[in-house]
Design a protein around this nucleic acid. Structure first.
Lengths: 153, 153
DNA sequence: TATTGTTATACTCTATAACTATA
DNA sequence: TATAGTTATAGAGTATAACAATA
C-alpha cells in the first residue's frame, strides 16, 4: 500500500482534511446547517451575490444539487433568488438579512473558535504550509483545469 | 473574510482536497464504486480483515452507515462478514477474491495514474509537504483526539 | 447552437436513536 | 453496564440526463 512515495502524502491530506471537517462540521451542524448549506452561506458572505453558475463553481456543488440546496435555504429565509439584469436566463443569489446574520453568527465565532489552535503557528509556518498545499494542488491539477471551474457541465 | 491569517490555509486545504477528490473520484466511479465503498475496499486491501468497529474508525464512516455500505459490497460479492473467534458480538470483514481483484484493478492503476503528476516533486519536497500537513493536522486535533477514533459512539 | 437553471430519477450517505445479542 | 452491530427513519447529497427559456 506504500510502494509509491507520495501515498503517505495523500493519506495525510485525507486525514488532515477530515480533521478540519470534524472540527468545523461540529460547529456548523449546531446551527442546523449542512456542510453544503454552510458552504453556500460562507461563499455568499461579504459579496453582493452571484449567479448559480458561479456559486456552483466556487462551492463545487453541481447544478442539479445546487437547486435543492438553494431551495432549502430559501425556505429558511436565508437567501434570495433575483433575476439578473441583462441576462434573463440567469439568477442572482444573495443573502437575506437573516442569512447575513447567520453568516456573522456562525462564521466569526467559527474563526474565533479555530484561532487559539492556529495561534501556535508562526507566520512563517503558516506560509510554509500554504505553499506546500499550493504545490500539492498544482501537481494534482495537471491537465484538469482550475479547482473551481468546469464542474457544472 | 480574510481577517485571520490562517483562513487562506484552510481555504487552500479545502481546495487541495477537492482537487484530490476530483482526480481520484473520477477513476473510482468508473468501476461503479462510491467513494465510501472504495474507502472500505482500500482499507481492507493488504490486510487480513478487521472488525466493523475498526473499519469504521479508519474510514470515518459511522456504524449505522457502515452497515449499509457493507451490505452493498456483500451483494456485489466484494467482501465477506465472518464471525470473529473469541467474541461473538464482533464480525470480521475481509475482501473476497473478487474484492481483492477489484482492489488490485483499481488501486494500482490509480497509483500509476497519479504517478507522473507526482514525479515532478522531489523526495525533499514530498517530505516538506507531508510535514506541513502533519503540523496542520496536529494543530486542528488539539483536544479532539486522533483522526481515526471516537467517531462511532 | 450554446448556456442558465430546473426537474426527475434512483441511489447513497448522514445523523440519530432504539434495539438485539453478547461481554 | 458496556460493547458490537443492525435496524429504522427522515433528510440531504450525488450522478445523470432530459427539459424550458433565453442568448
Amino acid at each position: 500500500m506504500s510502494q509509491a512515495p507520495f501515498l503517505p502524502v495523500l493519506r495525510e491530506l485525507a486525514c488532515c482534511y477530515q480533521a478540519f471537517e470534524r472540527l468545523s462540521g461540529h460547529h456548523i451542524r449546531q446551527v442546523g446547517l449542512t456542510p453544503g448549506q454552510f458552504d453556500v452561506i460562507a461563499t455568499l458572505g461579504n459579496t453582493c451575490g452571484m449567479s448559480c453558475r458561479e456559486l456552483g463553481e466556487r462551492t463545487l456543488i453541481t447544478k442539479g444539487t445546487l437547486t435543492g440546496v438553494l431551495d432549502r435555504l430559501v425556505e429558511r429565509g436565508l437567501i434570495r433568488r433575483e433575476t439578473t439584469p441583462g441576462d434573463r436566463r440567469s439568477l442572482t443569489v444573495t443573502l437575506t438579512d437573516a442569512g447575513r446574520s447567520v453568516f456573522e453568527d456562525v462564521f466569526s465565532p467559527h474563526v474565533a473558535y479555530l484561532e487559539p489552535a492556529f495561534a501556535q503557528l508562526s507566520a512563517t509556518e503558516l506560509s510554509t504550509i500554504e505553499a506546500s498545499l499550493k504545490q500539492l494542488r498544482s501537481v494534482m491539477e495537471q491537465g484538469f483545469g482550475d479547482c473551481c471551474e468546469k464542474l457544472n457541465n
